[in-house]
């Protein structure tokens, strides 16, 4: 949205940041989902590590499985690190502005909407752009396995539909992160 219209981005951001349903219903559900996913991941990984105490002297996992499927922990940790940075850099300052300082106006000191300006400021820094793009590469790798794996875990597997789910999953895993990467690169390049 930010690459199409500054005004639409500002009004949408203000709506998302101040709407009670988004803030107090959807956001806690999302947070619970992330915490549950993370907790289950750590719990299951701890069990998995205990299940083989002596490692193989020679192992060739690349001959029977994809890198993404074997390294969900690594890609997950990278996404978590990005989430930590995102909280430190965006979410906590937003909470501070809105609920501690009490400024729900969404305005900057000049009286204009602050959201697009803050976005532009963020993506003027090439380090932040690189971090952002790299994080979404890890998200893409995580989703390339995770999307179709979620269906298998709940028992949804079908000769006709599973290949479609796998293709849709691959498209989703590439297109969505690519979109986020494009936003960062677009705003960086537009300010050069």
């Amino acid at each position: 949205m930010s690459v199409v219209s500054e005004d639409t981005f500002n009004s949408t951001s203000h709506f998302m940041g101040t709407n009670a349903v988004v803030q107090f219903v959807l956001q806690p559900i999302l947070a619970f989902g992330v915490i549950f996913h993370l907790s289950m991941g750590i719990y299951l990984d701890t069990q998995n590590n205990k299940a083989r105490s002596v490692k193989y002297a020679m192992n060739k996992p690349g001959t029977n499985s994809s890198w993404m499927s074997r390294n969900m922990k690594i890609t997950g940790i990278m996404i978590l690190l990005f989430l930590g940075l995102h909280f430190y850099d965006f979410w906590i300052p937003e909470l501070n502005t809105k609920y501690i300082v009490g400024d729900m106006s969404g305005l900057n000191e000049h009286g204009g909407m602050r959201y697009f300006e803050e976005l532009q400021h963020k993506f003027a820094d090439p380090i932040w752009v690189i971090l952002y793009v790299l994080s979404f590469v890890f998200l893409a790798l995580h989703l390339l396995h995770g999307f179709q794996s979620a269906f298998q875990s709940v028992g949804f597997r079908h000769t006709k539909y599973t290949p479609i789910i796998q293709k849709l999953g691959n498209i989703y895993a590439i297109v969505v992160p690519l979109g986020f990467m494009f936003i960062a690169i677009f705003h960086y390049v537009s300010q050069l």
Binding site: L44, Q47, N48, K50, A51, R52, P61, T63, N64, S65, S66, S69, R70, M72, H145, Q148, S149, Q152, S153
Partner: peptide
Amino acid sequence: FGNCTNTGACEV
């Protein structure tokens, strides 16, 4: 035993 993470190595 450990948990299944759907790598598919077993089937191969």
